[in-house]
Design a protein around this nucleic acid. Structure first.
Lengths: 193, 193
DNA sequence: GTTTATGTTGATTGATGAGTCAATAAACTT
DNA sequence: AAGTTTATTGACTCATCAATCAACATAAAC
């Protein structure tokens, strides 16, 4: 059975399993064995590739950030003008890549992780800066100096919607969340359309 | 040393120590021994009074909710008219009782707890319903049917600000957070003053 | 002043889980 | 074909903790 070149496959499987497992149980209290089992291997192998549980968690966080980044880039590519760009950012935040149940559940738990692990905190701040900068770029040309405050508020609103999504069970409704935020943004801008 | 009538004192000390400990370490991964030590007793005594770690956590959650409730009631008492009431609700959310570092830190972790414990989930939904209803009561007379959406958005924004507060270290600035939310609310309403 | 209820803890148990290691096997290298 | 690197796991170690218990101490009740 043993083939060569397994490393990237195993790593990817573990990352995916980690997100699922954290999302499912709703806590960081997942064992390496559980994760490994879900990924179809022994816990020893998980340690072999990642060295520690901590590293597994961080890889999972990085993966979610990568997903989110890709989603934003994709949405922005087809956007023209500040308003369109804003809309794209909001839509991407609640796109199917980031706003799925397990992913959002894992995300909340990574906030907790960030309180104790420096690298996790760093990753989280990367996300926050990126979101803030994306919002600002769209808002500045439209509302000038007030952009700062609005971006802060809307950023917090997005984070809050993630939390609420995780809490209430069932399938997440990204479209509803996006339109809620978009409505607020529209009113914050000139009330157009 | 042993006197009679210790129970309420011990319970209160444990609840307080729990909030501090969770806030400090930034996770639910606190041992009963640590909590008990901070509260000045043995872990056996903590179990004697609460029966289990789970019950200790829930008592701490209830206490935070009680604090928050008191803060809101206090602020509302001195408020006249819908706008004043709204302002009171926002101010209370970021008041010194609820928005202190350890309390907010514990709060975030209780969100995590709510994903696995039914009673914690129930408590959290009590908070959410209360916040929503408070906002609605203030908003309905001012903006009618749009109140629903605005309350949802502002509620999420408040939760999001808690998270961000916990993440960024240092002393929390409740006044800044409150004025941010209040600014959004003012714009959502008629833009007055 | 003996019984009873309350307060208190050190020591112990039992479970759980992260990380290590030695051993096995298949694939590449020379 | 001998040697090396990569893949893989079961069994083990070691630490941590929640929960329990037996024992003791003080206060209240009778």
């Amino acid at each position: 059975m043993p083939k060569v070149g397994m490393e990237p496959i195993r790593r990817a499987a573990l990352v995916k399993a980690t997100i699922t497992e954290i999302g499912r149980t709703g806590s960081l209290d997942v064992t390496v064995s559980k994760i490994a089992k879900r990924a179809g291997m022994s816990s020893a192998l998980a340690h072999h590739y990642f060295g520690s549980k901590e590293q597994i968690f961080l890889a999972a966080m990085r993966h979610i950030l990568t997903l989110y980044g890709a989603e934003v880039r994709g949405a922005l590519a087809a956007a023209d003008g500040p308003e369109e760009r804003l809309r794209a950012v909001v839509r991407a935040s609640f796109g199917s890549g980031s706003f799925r149940r397990e992913v959002a559940g894992a995300w909340l738990n990574f906030y907790v992780l960030a309180q104790t692990q420096a690298e996790a905190r760093r990753l989280l701040s990367v996300y926050q800066r990126r979101l803030r900068s994306n919002l600002l770029h769209g808002l500045k040309p439209l509302i000038g100096e007030r952009a700062e405050v609005v971006a802060q508020g809307v950023g917090a609103m997005i984070d809050g919607l993630y939390i609420r999504e995780v809490l209430k069970g069932g399938t997440p409704d990204g479209a509803a969340a996006a339109s809620l935020v978009w409505g607020h943004l529209r009113r914050e801008m000139g009330l157009k359309a």
